[in-house]
Every structure is written in C-alpha cells, then in structure tokens.
Amino acid sequence: MNTLRYALRSAFKSIWLEKWFNLIAIFAISIGLFILCAFVMLTVNMDSAIQRWSKSFGIIVYLSDGLSREEEEKAGDKFRQDPDISEVNYISKETALENVRTALGSNSLILDVFKGNPLPSSFELKIKSDLLEPAYVREKAAKIEKMNGIKEVQYGEKWLSSLNTATKIMKIFAIFFGGGIFVAITFITYSIIKIFFHRRRDDIETLKLLGAPRMFIRLPLLIEGMFMGSVGGALSSIALFIIYSLVYAKIAEYVPSIKLIITSMPIFLYVLVPVSGALMSLVGSYIAIGRIRY
C-alpha cells in the first residue's frame, strides 16, 4: 500500500516534470486508438448490416405435385423439429398463385393461359444465422432435396458465399489492423518509457544500491505508461463520440432513414478503449524497463 502511494506520487510528479514528452505520447496514442475505434465502428455497422441481410436469407423448398395435405404437414413438422431451422413458413399452391397474381398486377391475365394452378406448394425455411456457412447450407439443402415429396430446393448460393467472404475478410482485416495498432501503441509507450528510464538511470542505480525492491523501481514507470495509454484512449473515445454525434445529426437532417441503418459503437466499447490503451501501454512500459539487475 505504501509502495503504491509512493509510486503514484512519483509517477504523477514525473508526468508533470516531463509534461511535453507525455503530451506527445498521449497525442500519438489517441490518434492510433481513434483510428482503431473508427474502424471498430465501421465493423459494427457492417456486421449489423450483414446480420440484417442474413435474417432475410431463406431456403425455398418446392414440394412434389400430388402430395396430400397430411404428407405436406408431415414435411412441415420435420422442418419445425430441425434445430438448425429457426422459422418455417408454409406457402400453399393457392397462396403462391395469389402472390404471383399480386406481383404481376394488370399482367396477371397471363396466368389464365394455364389450365389450373401450375405452381407447387412450398416451404420457406430460415436457417439460424450462426449456421449460415455456404458449405453447411449447401449440405443442408442437399439433404432436404433427398427427402420424400421434395421436388426442388432453391437458395441464394452466390449471395450467401459473397456475404460469407465479406464477413471473413472483415474479421481478418480487423485482427491485423487491431494487431497493428496494438504494436504501434506498445512501441510508442516503449520508446517514451525507455527515454524516461535512461534519463533517470542514475536515480534508479541509487535506488538499487539502497536496496529498493524491483517493484518499487518499476511501479512509477508502469503507472506513467498506463496513464499515457488510458488518457490517450479516453481522448480518442471522446473525440469519436463527438465526431460521430455531429456527423450523424448532420446526415439525419437530410436522410432521416439513416437512423435505422447506422448504429454507434456500444457504450461498453467507449469505456473499453481507455482500458485497452492502458493495457497496451503497460505492455510497452514493461518491455522498456526490462529486467532490473542488481
């Protein structure tokens, strides 16, 4: 407890004494974290768009002609019991014809050419969003197609595949980008703390000769590093929030529907930014101090 009190006092004294160095580091860290946050916000929005699109993704299962009502219901029950399927909608021949008539509007007379109803009954199945892997959906569709009484199975294979690729690319990019920012912030803190460490090497040497424990020597520098990271993070969070609010309000004036499409970063992420900034800087400071040898 006393060590922590001493370390806090020493760290804040040094922050004040080296205020210009600290300001530069905080500024650099906040720029790095701001870019990362902006990217996270973009990712969150893209992800929610993908989630919205995937909700509308369905497999259409056309039933063979001549199936009795019981047989159709039996097929429907099978789909409802399937844990991979989140929603099952039955579309009877009559409803399908009605839908086509509505869609064709004044051109619906063309349907009178057919004797009777040419359209089959069908089921519209919604696959659970976490299972929307192209390979998995393809396999699922093939299995359904092999079931008795199924004439044909259709789904947007290309669309699903593109969506999946986009999501994967985004995730990989997020990992590399996040990693890059982590390395950059760690390096910034590493460099600054290394400079501080060298500037204070005589005092550190004296502390070692007096028998100060390693933690007593390290802690002020670690606190200083964490301070830089957390303040840099807090500044980038505040800047992002302000910029987002201003831009959002401006766009919403002209395109009110934007409110339904664009979402802000979740509040917990705004809090997480200073915390992650502090952690990145802690790693940098720790490496900069290195092993303290007596």
Partner: peptide, 19 residues
C-alpha cells in the same frame, strides 16, 4: 536488495535525488 537493506552507504559523490 535484502542484503543492501542491512547496509547504509555514504557515497563519495553523495548520490542524492535532485528531484
């Protein structure tokens, strides 16, 4: 460090903390 804490050192060049 434990051994050094048993010893008080008066350095020739003082080694005082100037800050």
């Amino acid at each position: 460090p434990q051994v050094r804490r048993k010893i008080g050192i008066v350095f020739q060049d003082f080694r005082l903390f100037t800050d």
